[in-house]
């Protein structure tokens, strides 16, 4: 491990600890790749973290038809560790997005996709699957670390993604 990589390693470690211990993420892993400017992290949050507003509308409609809530299964997410004092250019962000797939590696093999939404009607399940893979845009969590080791998380989407209606 070269010495200039060490601060980045430490940064990733802080974020990893925070994810696991403060936010109860599981299956977290540090991800290295040759064409990435730094290590990323991916993992499984305890709850589903992001629902696209269009999908949310579909879910609400489907729930109305089914007359019962649809279970939201958490999805694997990418995390980019950053320090608040850093400066990043558009070029660097673009490089990260170009290097990753929309879905982190463990979710890509169908074996890990446990059918926990089995109680959902077949058609709705298909709809939900659509949002999981083909319709899912590239997104990652910017994990900004401050000097007091506070970590705050922001979604960053590649391309025009409309805001969620909170």
């Amino acid at each position: 491990m070269s010495s200039d990589q060490q601060p980045l390693e430490a940064l990733a470690q802080i974020v990893l600890n925070n994810l696991e211990n403060q936010h109860d993420w599981t299956e977290t892993k540090v991800h290295s790749q040759a064409n990435l400017p730094r290590q990323l992290i991916y993992g499984l949050p305890p709850n589903r973290l992001y629902v696209h507003p269009d999908e949310q509308i579909e879910i609400i409609k489907a729930e109305k038809d089914l007359e019962k809530p649809i279970l939201q299964v958490p999805e694997f997410e990418w995390v980019l560790p950053l320090h608040l004092a850093e400066k990043w250019s558009l070029a660097e962000f673009a490089a990260v997005f170009d290097a990753i797939d929309a879905v982190p590696p463990p979710a890509q093999d169908p074996a890990s996709e446990s059918g926990s939404a089995a109680d959902v009607a077949g058609e709705q399940q298909q709809q939900q699957k659509l949002w999981k893979v083909p319709k899912r845009g590239k997104r990652l969590l910017l994990a900004t670390v401050q000097n007091d080791s506070t970590v705050t998380y922001y979604w960053m989407h590649d391309g025009l993604v409309k805001p969620r209606q909170n």
């Binding site: 320090h83 400066k87 250019s89 805001p163 909170n166």
Partner: peptide, 28 residues
């Protein structure tokens, strides 16, 4: 921004916060 302009993370964080507070997304 220009393609290689270095954007301070603090700007991104504060604008992101402001955007979310007014139900908007911060676009760069």
């Amino acid at each position: 921004y220009e393609w290689d302009t270095e954007i301070p993370m603090l700007d991104i964080v504060t604008s992101g916060r402001l955007g979310t507070a007014v139900k908007k997304s911060y676009l760069l």
